[in-house]
Design a binder for these strands. Sequence first.
RNA 1: CGGGCUGGCGUAUGAUGGUGGUACGCGUGGUUUGGGACCACGUAGACUGGGUUCGAUUCCCAGCAGCCCGACCA
Length: 408
Amino acid sequence: MKLSQLFTKTLRDAPTDETAINAQLLLRGGFISKVMAGVYEYLPLGFRVLDKIQRIIREEMNATGAQELFLSVFQNKETWQATGRWESAKEVMYRFQDDSGRAYGLGFTHEEPLTSTAKHFIGSYKDLPRAVYQIQTKFRNEPRAKSGLLRGREFLMKDLYSFHTDQEDLDGYYEKVAAAYLRIFDRAGVKAIRTLASGGLFSKFSDEFQVLAPVGEDTIYVNEKENRAVNQEVHTEEFLKDLGWNRSDLKEQRAIEVGNIFKLGTRFSEALGLLYTDKDGNKQPVVMASYGIGPGRLMATIVETSHDENGIVWPESIAPFRVHLIALPGGEEKADELYKQLGDEVLYDDRTDKTAGEKFADADLLGCPIRIVVSKKTLSQDSVEMKMRSADEEKLVKISDIQAKIKK
RNA sequence: CGGGCUGGCGUAUGAUGGUGGUACGCGUGGUUUGGGACCACGUAGACUGGGUUCGAUUCCCAGCAGCCCGACCA
């Protein structure tokens, strides 16, 4: 991609009404655009990052045996009434009527519609287990949207749902997904800590995946030896005793919840009549679990945990481009040539009306892992300059060696 | 939902109860280029409603919007 052709531009100053680091840097870089509180658009650079995050998630979800699908945003009242959540969730669910008076909701989660759909296909123990997931826009009437992409009213969610004959089968798959989650966060360049938390409406406990950051909304108590934690909500003497942990071993930290997994039991299957026939011919409710990750929140979390005073430092796996190529005077022709050779993962600053300083500042802000500068100076030594975004030092690399140097 | 702060060109910011500047951006022309260029000309702005006042962008009230703290957070 040539910077001279890019849809967006960078901003020298961050808008003053955003204080969260992720919002400031992503807005300045032109990764996202704000529509209203808690509602953001993903622009080309941001969309590339998001796409890479989603690819990682899809790979790991598919590896657990889950199948991708795509449910509807529109929710019908009757399905939600069956579980009581048309009423109990009315504060978080956007609801409205069309001109004929028919009521609709917008999905903030999909247990109800999916359980309802699953009834068409799951009727026997032979149909179990199954796991399906989607990546979709959710709507949630947040009383207080905040912190850029971290808490929005419209946001992306990867939601996975699994269906099992019994608790034991569910437990096995649940642990498989927990391991997949840790791999996802690791691959995306953040250090997530599996954290015990309360189960909300669904169950006694749930597992959250928390990334330490001052902007985080959660307070967790980290057991560094085990790389586990408990959420403040369940930080009680008797609970810690059950875990065999001492309060003195735990460190209080602020953290961002990037994932959450729940054992749902039979709450939804019973309410909506998702039953299967077991080997003995008896009807049994299907045992379910659900598993969420917010790709946009994850993107924001990465910015919160990986930046410096000049801009974002993207992990290689999810950077919008692998290489940021800069042409300085005298290097234009050679830079054009390199741009054609090096392929799709290059953001090429071919602008002729910008100074070197501005190009460097933009490269730092946009945060691609490898910066390559081509100028008269470097070409006089038959070289280009190469600098990693995460490092301070640059070095000269012979033109003939570039291909090999930027390979993963 | 309770509390606080804020509301001005696209962004940042100065001054101001008396016809609104500056920087960046953007446009045109020219000169430039290794860490946020230079010159000239041009472009573009007071959230909405009410009140006080001879006169309100400025003061007051309400609404709306944004941010922050708290509550809430399948």
